[in-house]
Design a protein around this nucleic acid. Structure first.
Length: 206
DNA sequence: TAGTTGATCGTCT
DNA sequence: GACGATCAACTAA
């Protein structure tokens, strides 16, 4: 697989454009000598000051400081007392926009992901990786963080480094991209800022 | 199959 | 002091 890291300029474009372009790209994670790769199949855009659902809506705080950095950083936040979610910061410094990664299609390192998600216990490591075993691995924002080992320590990481980055993938045609309202929020729910690859089996919702 | 709820805590009001 | 960009387990039907 040809892993071509996306350049800084990719992230500095308008947030909604970046969100749609992220579909079909690959999240690459290097951890403890393992390589984990997942194709992005679902995202949500959060447009800072224009968006009452965004953490950045009320301006910069200690928590959301990373969102205001230059595009191409990783914003990880903790929620519901037990979950982490990963966002990709977009646009120039001081803007406060980001794209939430909601679902991935596992590509490489599936056994490691299963172990991190607790699908495999030491006893039955032998079970064969049937395809439907992989569906629940990364089909939700908190699930993919667990599978990819993304937590507080990864907040603020530069996606042009080597620990985590986004690699180029086949362009997803506009025809195959669906848009809907975002999930799990109250304010600003009318905005159609969730984008996904139509008919992909790894979406968080059908 | 749909709807409800418990887990669990950092952040902002 | 309330609640959330969630998930999984449970209940009812």
């Amino acid at each position: 697989m040809n892993l071509k890291k996306l350049p800084r300029s990719f992230y500095l474009r308008p947030t909604l454009t970046v969100a749609k372009d992220l579909l079909g790209k690959y999240v690459v994670r290097k951890i403890h000598g393992h390589l984990l790769i997942g194709k992005i199949v679902e995202v949500e855009a959060y447009l800072g000051e224009k968006d009452p659902a965004s953490h950045a809506y009320r301006g910069k705080t200690k928590r959301n400081e990373v969102m205001f950095r230059r595009g191409g950083h990783l914003y990880v936040y903790f929620t519901y007392g037990m979950h982490f979610c990963a966002n990709i910061v977009t646009e120039e410094q001081g803007i406060g926009h980001a794209v939430l990664i909601r679902a991935l299609e596992p590509v490489e390192g599936i056994e490691v992901m299963k172990r991190k998600r607790g699908f495999i216990s030491k006893q039955n490591e032998k079970q064969s990786p049937a395809e439907n075993d992989t569906i629940g691995l990364t089909n939700g924002p908190a699930k993919l963080c667990k599978a990819f080992g993304i937590a507080r320590a990864q907040n603020g990481i530069d996606l042009l480094g080597n620990e985590i980055f986004i690699a180029d993938g086949k362009k997803v045609l506009g025809l195959k991209i669906g848009a809907s309202q975002r999930i799990g929020i109250r304010n600003g729910r009318e905005k159609q800022w969730r984008f996904y690859i139509k008919q992909n089996s790894y979406l968080s919702r059908k």
